[in-house]
Simulated scan of single mutants.
Amino acid sequence: MLKNRLTSALLILFLITIVFYANAQSIPASGDSLELKKKTGRMSITNLFNTGSMYYFTGVVSNNKPSFDTKFVYDNLRQNWGVLFFKSFDLVDRKDAINYALIVLNKRYFIGSRIMISPQAGAQLNQIGTIAGPGTDFLTNLSISYRFAKHITISNDAVMQNLVLTHRANWTNRMKLQYQKQSFIIAANMWHRNRIFNNPGYLAAGSFVSYSGIKLNSVMNLVMTFSQIKILNADTPRKNGMMLSVGLDF
């Protein structure tokens, strides 16, 4: 019964997110309202076709089959909180584990002009034939970033997954060094899944390159990315892989 209630709560959160976005999109596009939106909030939607399937946030290659994902981000710039909705589809196998969704809320705290601390909480919904099937569970993340040059930051994410329902808790740290200038991003990543919860661990490295500076019209950009993951050490066999992506950003 508890599992059914938690699943229902996740579905309600999903619907609230969609309704919130629909209402935000209905704001009149007058000069005053556009200026207000710039000061108070920022929204984006990114849709990508991918040559493979990866869980890039935790450094895992799923398979080399093509996939599609869509990401909606809303940031409240005055109160420094945000919401992320992410949905991934395997374009070949609807029963593959890469068919899932994420809903994550975040809060941002700043120490001076260089350090940001962002606690995050949400849920991963496994969607093999259902909206929230077996494996659906809650997650948390604590992100700490330091900007030591105008375009360069270093950050660490401590991601804890499967915390309540599945009894398969795991903890992955991701260290990222990123250079970003306007629409160009290049990043180097290291992932380490530790063995604190008695789950198999691994160490992986990867790179990420993205360019979204090609404008198709006033609100739409072409996005191109390259992602790569190399397993350095693992308790159980894991895949290496690379992925090219192309899509649209609104």
Rank of each mutant, 00 (worst) to 15 (best):
G133W: 05
M1N: 15
T51Y: 06
A204L: 04
P237E: 02
N240W: 01
I16N: 12
T166W: 00
R5A: 15
D157H: 03
R193T: 10
A158Y: 06
I214F: 07
A234L: 04
Y146G: 00
S44M: 09
S26A: 13
M242D: 07
V159M: 10
V83N: 06
Y202W: 01
L48E: 12
S53M: 10
I111Y: 04
G206Q: 08
S30W: 09
V92W: 07
N106G: 05
N233D: 13
N141Y: 02
I152T: 09
F86I: 08
L105K: 00
T40A: 14
L2Q: 09
G133T: 03
N50Y: 10
L2R: 09
L222C: 02
L248I: 11
L142G: 02
P66S: 05
G59S: 06
N80G: 03
R114V: 00
D32Y: 14
F250V: 13
A149I: 05
Y146C: 01
R174S: 10
W81M: 04
Q180K: 14
N63C: 00
T58D: 11
R238D: 02
M224D: 03
N126H: 11
V60I: 13
M224E: 02
Q180G: 08
K3G: 11
I185A: 09
Q120V: 06
F57N: 15
M160S: 11
T17I: 07
P119R: 01
D249N: 14
A158M: 08
L125S: 11
Q124K: 04
R168K: 12
S67D: 04
V164G: 04
S183D: 14
